[in-house]
Write a protein that binds this DNA or RNA. Structure first.
Lengths: 328, 328
DNA sequence: CTGAAAGCGCTTACAG
DNA sequence: CTGAAAGCGCTTACAG
């Protein structure tokens, strides 16, 4: 392998000079420059990043921790992150927890031992062990999807957007609205969205029927089963159901279709998540779009800011929009 | 930051001993072991990977090059890769070319300067510059999705599977079959699938109608536009169309639905790609499933094999299955 | 069973 | 404008 020493020898300069040339700092005479350029060209030399980072303590690598890669939401976020990182000459080290919480902590440590310059955490909880691990970290961490008090976070407006969607459903005339959520260790998805649901119904003096409130787990199957439970619960049927993710909604719709229950005439469905599946399913799904790709990009920008100086903790409530389609 | 020197001092041994302990090679007395363990525990020490790789020339990082992260096919492949890599204590450095070919070459170089131990390439072409870049690489590269002659490759059975699907369509009674493909710089998707289409029709003495053969670009829109062109081509309508990806098929179906053309009664649709979208769209799409996650896992295993000895070039024709649903 | 020494490929003051 | 020297945090023969 060609090293900086080889280049120095071939170009008849010292390796300090080559280094200066490579990093464009300090003076290098035009002549030296030319010789170095030529030699680098000929040899195809590329500096060793390992050696460089050992000296500079910078790797140009950002660690990304996410629960699961193979959901459309996740892949959009990653796409946004990647775009910004690439523009700023950072590389992305991707780790996935397969939805196991403790792994978030493990990866925070692991990524640091890999000397990443910063970490982007798509958090699914805000429990103490995680907060502690973040506190002990020596590199900047930016959270996406949860508000983690101690660090900069890009937060989805879960409460606000869900509230608006429920308002929309009520305006459309639905009075008996059900809800399929997820476990509450996840504050953003599990608690906030449910709270908005309950608050909005209450505000309109509509009944919150426990038989119509289910807890799934992000999967299509759990949406299917939750809807089944709602329909078979013994109480009257709701005339509309809100699902906290589009995956859950797709499962719920599947069950309704099997039962020949018309959407939206018999039961309307709305959800969070602007996947292509939600768009092309029939009827097309009315959803909250959290503009995930953009959110990923913003989180990446926030992290890069912290890397280049700013130490302030920023909280960004991300934008959203309602995509009104045919399921409500 | 705690380094191996700090640990050595605190545990009252030399750093060689600490290193031996960390890598479990060479002898370390029980007593020394205990002291070292304790100190590491207390300090939360993690060895610097940069320093380690500078010495050992191994980083434990695998570079992955893919055209686009936000397609379901890609994210499944990545998921499979990630699983195997994680099991083997490798990390994944992810780069995306945004479908720009030259970037594949750029990234092969870039990843090497990052001292990755190996590269997994989801190739979209097999042109000379790429082959050359691969030839010049100093680390093992495994290709997925294209047969790259000089290196181990996991290849989708494009010709075989497409042929079987066309056979299936013919058996179902369709005689006027159209085709929506992609550009031919991509041998696997652009050439092989088309060749299978033409050969199978020819074998059954069916006419290959040029007006029914379109070229899209992997996007839903291009599927939409291609189907539009087929319908408006002036010649008779086909009674079935095969699309080389499910995305393209979804666009094509969209157009047919807008025109009130019944699927599959008026025109049947089949495609390659087992996305959830293909599954839940109506009618559900009959597709070839290339088991992408498994393919990713196999490619990763192949690469790890090469990393640990075996230098033989292996070609693996991956498995596939037909998912017969309601669109044909 | 253990430690001293050399070296991996860089960068960075410093002296000239 | 340029080079010699030190050092980043590890591992690895080698000698004991």
């Amino acid at each position: 392998m060609t090293t900086i020493n080889d280049i120095a020898k071939l170009a008849e300069v010292s390796r300090s000079t080559v280094s200066r040339y490579l990093n464009s700092n300090g003076y290098v005479s035009e002549e030296a420059k030319k010789r170095i350029m030529k030699v680098i060209e000929e040899t195809g030399y590329m500096p060793s990043q390992s050696a460089k980072s050992l000296r500079t303590k910078k790797t140009g690598v950002i660690g990304v921790i996410l629960p699961k890669i193979s959901t459309e939401t996740a892949s959009r976020v990653v796409s946004g992150i990647n775009k910004v990182l690439q523009q700023n000459d950072y590389q992305m080290l991707l780790t996935t927890t397969s939805q196991e919480h403790k792994k978030e902590i493990e990866f925070i440590r692991l990524l640091q031992s890999r000397n990443v310059d910063g970490i982007l955490l798509l958090a699914t909880n805000t429990e103490k062990p995680l907060i502690d691990a973040i506190g002990n970290a020596t590199v900047p961490i930016v959270a996406l999807g949860q508000d983690i008090p101690t660090i900069s976070s890009v937060i989805y407006p879960d409460y606000l957007a869900t509230g608006e969607m429920i308002e929309y459903m009520i305006q459309k005339g639905y009075q008996h609205i059900g809800f399929i959520g997820v476990e509450e260790y996840d504050p953003a998805v599990g608690i906030e969205r449910k709270r908005a649901f309950v608050d909005t119904l209450t505000k309109h003096q509509l009944k919150v029927n426990k038989d119509w409130i289910m807890q799934g787990d992000f999967s299509i199957e759990s949406g299917y089963n939750s809807m089944k439970s709602i329909i078979n619960s013994g109480s009257d049927r709701p005339d509309a159901v809100f699902a906290v993710t589009d995956q859950i909604a797709v499962g719920a719709m599947q069950f309704l279709k099997e039962q020949q229950i018309q959407i939206p005439n018999d039961i309307a469905i709305a959800a969070t998540g602007a996947s292509r599946l939600a768009q092309y399913i029939e009827p097309s799904l009315t959803v909250i779009d959290f503009l995930n790709e953009e959110a990923g990009a913003i989180a990446a920008e926030l992290l890069i800011e912290e890397l280049t100086g700013t130490k302030a903790i920023k909280k960004i409530i991300h934008d959203y929009r309602l995509l009104v389609r045919n399921s409500v």
